[in-house]
């Protein structure tokens, strides 16, 4: 996996909440047995009209977003199906990071990204950045004021800097284990296999304890 340390690129602003994985990569593209070739189909039904021409209204089709590599969206991004093809499509289109807001709900905090999408992103080196609703709103405004605005996402310092009319700098939280895996581009299976001995002794114990057939 390619490590993620610090990255600067153009922002694409997708002002939609609850973007589901069916929109990110539609079912007809899930028949491929390869791991590549999904980028051209990202957001297919929104990106193209019925005749297959690019829909000029869709943010990714704006001339200013042609080289975009940081996607900003609203809350609950990646909800729905577990298809990892969604992450592959986002990455293969050219995005390195996705930014979305968490939401307050009473004393609870509703995460910005759906669980499985977030996990799948981590396994592929796609950084998911959670900011507050207010901070994400400021990024949307910066992108509207200056189409094609750039941002820097720095995982090491855990900051997003938007190089807009006014410079915006926001800190974000990330679990230490996630940061370690992304910054070092670690192979998750390799990490688990270091515990092969533990797994074997667990299996012996587990098989003896659990009822047969379990």
């Amino acid at each position: 996996m390619e490590p993620f340390k610090k990255y600067t690129g153009v922002i694409a602003a997708l002002d939609t909440a609850n973007v589901d994985t069916d929109q990110i990569i539609a079912k007809q593209f899930l028949k491929s047995i390869a791991r590549t070739g999904f980028g051209e189909h990202l957001f297919h039904d929104w990106r193209y009209d019925a005749s297959g021409k690019p829909n000029p209204e869709f943010p990714l089709n704006h001339p200013s977003a042609q080289s975009a590599s940081i996607l900003v969206a609203r809350n609950n991004f990646g909800c729905g199906s577990s298809r990892e093809h969604a992450v592959w499509a986002v990455q293969q289109y050219g995005f390195r990071a996705v930014i979305a807001p968490w939401k307050a709900s009473g004393q609870d905090r509703i995460p910005a990204f759906a669980d499985i999408f977030r996990n799948n992103s981590m396994k592929n080196g796609l950084l998911t950045v959670e900011l507050t609703e207010d901070q994400v709103e400021q990024i949307f405004q910066a992108a509207a004021a200056q189409p094609g605005v750039q941002a820097t996402v720095d995982l090491d310092t855990q900051t997003v800097t938007v190089h807009g009319p006014q410079k915006l700098v926001f800190s974000f939280e990330v679990e230490a284990s996630v940061k370690d895996r992304l910054i070092n581009g670690l192979d998750d299976i390799g990490i688990s296999l270091k515990y092969a001995g533990d797994i074997t002794s667990f299996e012996t114990r587990h098989n003896a304890q659990m009822p047969a057939g379990q």
Binding site: S82, N119, N120, K123, N124, D188, I199
Partner: peptide
């Protein structure tokens, strides 16, 4: 789980 996790379980019978 996603496909990377499917591979993980196939290889290790475990998931982090």
């Amino acid at each position: 789980i996603g496909t990377s996790e499917v591979e993980h379980v196939l290889a290790t019978q475990c998931l982090p």
